[in-house]
Structures are given as C-alpha cells and as structure tokens.
C-alpha cells in the first residue's frame, strides 16, 4: 500500500469521506477549548489589558497563511513531477483558504496594533511581507480562474507557485533590507515570543492545533468539491 495510491480520486474520496466527520469533531473541540480558555481562562496582560487575547486568532491564522503556501508549493511540485490530478486540485483548493487566513492575520494584527502602537497599519517588514503574500495568493487564484483547460491551468499555476515561492522569499529579505535602509533602527518589533508567558502558551498551542485541523478539513472538503466538478466536466465531455 503506497502513499501515492491516495492520488487516485476514488481512494481519496473514500478516505477523505471517512476522515472529515472525525476531524470535524476534533476541530470543533480544539477551537472551542482553545478560544474559550484563551479568552476567559487567561489573565489580562499588565500592559496591554485584554487586547492581548487576540493573539489566539492572530498567531494561528498567520501560521496557516504561510504554511498553506508551502503546502501548495509541495502539491504543485507533485503535480509537475508525478502528474497526480488530486495533488493539483488540492493546491487549487488551499489557495482561497490561505488568502483568507492572510487577511485574518492582517485584520487581527491591525486591531491589535491600534491600541499597542496607536496605528492600524505600519510599514513594518512583517506586515509588508504579509501584504505581499496576499498579493501572491490573489495572482495565483486569478490565474486558475482565467484558464479554461484545467490541465493547462494546473501546469501554469504550479509553475507560478514555484517561481512565486522563490520571489516571495526574495521579497521577504528585500523588505527587511528596505526597512533598515529607509528608517535605521526605527522599525517596530513584532516578536511575540518575548511576551508570551506559559499562561498564554498552552491555550495558544490548542488554538494552533484547532486552526491546523480546520485548514485540513477545509482543504479536504474543497478538494472533494473540485474532484466532483472534474467528474461532472468529464461526464459532460463524454456525453456530448
């Protein structure tokens, strides 16, 4: 039994169909426990008050935003090398979720930033990088929608994803460079690890687990939809 057998639509549909109910329960449990614990079971920060609790949405969504792209990169590579359709469709399915997570991270960051730094937005390297990530997601999704032939679309979006990954990484370093270059030492530090206490750390872990599970089931559901769409298109092509 090889892992690659799940690239077959029938196998994938069977396994994912069994997984989704289990994962849904786990997701709901993790998110409920994590968020309730985080919001009501942790003390207020001595400096930031209760504002700090947005961390329980901000950090997990930001992690998923980046890791969704990495997942797309891997599945795109699998499509380019091994031509497994399910892999390409999984990448397509993950993109809007990744974009949403990026926007959630930017939004919660803005809400958090207002009381902390007195502004919703600053051209800090991290914020800027996330905005750039959102633009990469947009381009990727737009390219999928613009091409009718699905195999060609899968090829082109995969190539774009590979090239985009390289340039997204370059942009990340360039943005760091640019910020130092323009305002020496004046950048805001966003490093959360400094002020995360154990009281916050464990509920945060539960929230992260909840977001990861949420991402996985959303990708599974959307991939199943894409597979059914492809089946419908194939049936239509056969019967005309």
């Amino acid at each position: 039994m090889s892992f690659w057998e799940y690239a077959n639509p029938v196998k994938f549909m069977g396994l994912s169909g069994r997984l989704i109910p289990v994962l849904s329960v786990l997701t709901a449990l993790c998110l409920a426990v994590g968020i309730l614990w985080g919001f009501f079971g942790t003390p207020d920060d001595y400096k930031q008050g209760s504002t700090v609790k947005i961390i329980f949405l901000h950090v997990p969504s930001a992690m998923i935003a980046i890791n969704a792209w990495i997942m797309m990169m891997i599945t795109s590579l699998v499509w380019l090398i091994r031509r497994h359709h399910v892999s390409a469709l999984a990448a397509k399915a993950a993109a809007p979720i990744g974009l949403t997570m990026t926007l959630i991270a930017l939004g919660t960051g803005a809400i958090w930033g207002k009381p902390m730094w007195g502004t919703y937005w600053a051209w800090d390297p991290r914020l800027t990088s996330f905005m750039i990530l959102a633009v990469f997601y947009l381009g990727y999704i737009a390219l999928w929608n613009a091409i009718e032939d699905t195999d060609v679309a899968a090829d082109l979006t995969s190539i774009l994803c590979m090239v985009g990954s390289v340039f997204a990484l370059l942009s990340r370093y360039a943005v760091n460079f640019w910020n130092q270059g323009l305002h020496q030492g004046a950048s805001l530090s966003l490093d959360k690890e400094e002020h995360v206490d154990n009281a916050f750390y464990f509920p945060l872990l539960v929230c992260i687990a909840g977001f990861v599970l949420l991402f996985v089931i959303l990708v599974l559901i959307r991939t199943r939809t894409e597979i059914r769409l492809r089946r419908a298109a194939s049936l239509q092509a056969r019967n005309t």
């Binding site: 750039i132 633009v135 990469f136 947009l138 381009g139 737009a142 390219l143 613009a146 774009l160 090239v163 985009g164 340039f167 997204a168 370059l170 942009s171 370093y173 360039a174 943005v175 460079f177 640019w178 270059g181 323009l182």
Partner: peptide
C-alpha cells in the same frame, strides 16, 4: 492578469534598485 502576476515578482528588484538611488 499579467500585471497582477508580474508586479509582485518585481518587488525585490524595485526595492534594491530604488534603495540604492535613495542611499
């Protein structure tokens, strides 16, 4: 669509180019 795809890829070039002149 071409602009939407290419402009993000131009970011590093723009930054390094403009920063060198600004400096």
């Amino acid at each position: 669509l071409l602009s939407l795809l290419v402009l993000p890829l131009y970011i590093p070039t723009l930054i390094f180019g403009a920063v060198s002149v600004t400096k």
